[in-house]
């Protein structure tokens, strides 16, 4: 397999999280199919990648805390809670839609 192979993803942010990502709700990305160690990339890898490469805002702690997506953010893979899909270990597939939702509390 070509080591430079990439997979297309749609990553979306809502509930205010988009404000951390250049005020853009929908991001069309091409990510490497394999990580540095040659393993297929996972959602956990994607979170790290978004934090390091895509997020311009410096307040990383509003997205990732202690190496995990911060409490109060739901991660949905193809519109299903990532806990139904194996959480961070889920292996990304071409054209997956990954949605990050910050829970709202206002009323």
């Amino acid at each position: 397999m070509d080591t430079h192979e990439t997979i297309p993803l749609i990553v979306e942010f809502t509930g205010g999280l988009e404000m951390l990502f250049s005020d853009q709700r929908k991001h069309t990305l091409q990510v490497p199919a394999k990580d540095d160690k040659g393993n297929a990339v996972t959602v956990g890898w994607l979170v790290h990648h978004l934090c390091e490469e895509v997020m311009k805002d410096t307040r990383k702690e509003l997205f990732v805390l202690d190496g995990h997506v911060r409490p109060g953010i739901l991660v949905l893979i193809n519109d299903a809670d990532w806990e139904l899909e194996g959480e961070a270990s889920y292996v990304l597939q071409p054209r997956d839609n990954v949605l990050f939702v910050s829970t709202l509390h206002g009323g």
């Binding site: 509003l62 805390l65 911060r70 409490p71 109060g72 953010i73 910050s102 829970t103 009323g107």
Partner: peptide, 15 residues
């Protein structure tokens, strides 16, 4: 079940 841990207080915004 959905939110086992509360969000950090500084990430919570009221209307």
């Amino acid at each position: 079940c959905v939110f086992p841990k509360p969000p950090p207080a500084e990430s919570v915004v009221s209307c």
